[in-house]
């Protein structure tokens, strides 16, 4: 049953405490698109945590909102200024779309804010024509991790696709015996902004199979075993960018020799 999140806004306190840089915040809210224009992909995404009344700039998320639906925000308070989009910045940040919670489309004008000129992210997949030199050995057992939006198995462009591509380059050079690909799902329920969130158990398998399919295409002939587990717990993994929930929504690619 779909929920209408706008009701939550009426429960918000009128004032918000300033939050420390680096502090982790998470909430569910409707996104607002601020139509700034500094060229392609320069628009701003804003959203307000109803519990604190604080509006945040969540534009840095690798998977951005859909203005029709609520987002599950997980981010850390950044010291970056408000001048780009007009709100304090969460960075790193994730904004998972919750398609069973409708939002009213809301767009506001730039109001003098410039937005951000798009700069290709560091996790930008490598064109085939510019493929880097193969890494040199010695090679030993290693595990790579790819990460996903809440309850999805899609390899997000310029984030998880990059991670898998780089893993494939290393694996191709290493020539291991086999890969064990394990998908995880954060199935233990949590309550955020009054909304109970739990990933579906099936998404663990879907993640494993999607990554395995990708690796089978990138590395023809490689033996790949797929596994999946529910009840995923947070891990300290660099590409999860210090977002605990992000680390739970992962696939492990274990390289065995």
């Amino acid at each position: 049953m779909k929920k209408l999140l706008t009701l939550l806004a009426f429960t918000a306190p009128l004032s918000a405490q300033a939050q420390e840089a680096g502090e982790l915040v998470s909430f569910v809210s409707c996104p607002v698109y601020r139509d700034t224009d500094q060229g392609r992909k320069s628009g701003c995404w804003l959203t307000t945590d109803a519990a604190s009344g604080q509006q945040w700039d969540v534009s840095h998320s690798p998977y951005k909102p859909n203005w029709d639906y609520a987002i599950f925000v997980e981010g850390r308070v950044s010291e970056e200024g408000e001048d780009a989009c007009g709100a304090p910045v969460l960075e790193p940040v994730r904004t998972s779309r919750l398609l069973d919670i409708d939002c009213t489309r809301h767009m506001i004008p730039a109001e003098g804010y410039p937005g951000r000129f798009f700069i290709a992210p560091e996790r930008y997949i490598t064109p085939l024509a510019r493929r880097p030199e193969a890494p040199e050995g010695p090679f030993e057992e290693r595990t790579f991790y790819a990460f996903f939006e809440f309850d999805r198995d899609f390899l997000v462009y310029q984030y998880s696709d990059f991670i898998v591509q780089q893993a494939a380059y290393w694996i191709e050079a290493a020539q291991p015996r086999r890969l064990v690909v394990t998908g995880y799902a954060a199935t233990d329920p949590i309550t955020v902004s009054g909304v109970e969130l739990a990933e579906s158990p099936e998404i663990a398998q879907a993640r494993a199979e999607n990554v395995a399919l990708t690796l089978s295409r990138l590395l023809p002939g490689m033996e790949i075993v797929t596994r999946w587990e529910t009840g995923s717990q947070p891990m300290d993994l660099s590409d999860a960018d210090t977002i605990p929930g992000q680390s739970q929504r992962r696939v492990e690619i274990k390289v065995e020799f």
Binding site: D35, D37, W45, N66, W67
Partner: peptide
């Protein structure tokens, strides 16, 4: 360079992570 707002274009605004809407040329 002339950007405009693309919305509701399946294949572009659904899964890739760009968001819906987003500004493009």
């Amino acid at each position: 360079e002339r950007t405009f707002l693309v919305s509701d274009a399946a294949g572009l605004t659904t899964q890739m992570g760009f968001g819906n809407p987003f500004r493009v040329a």
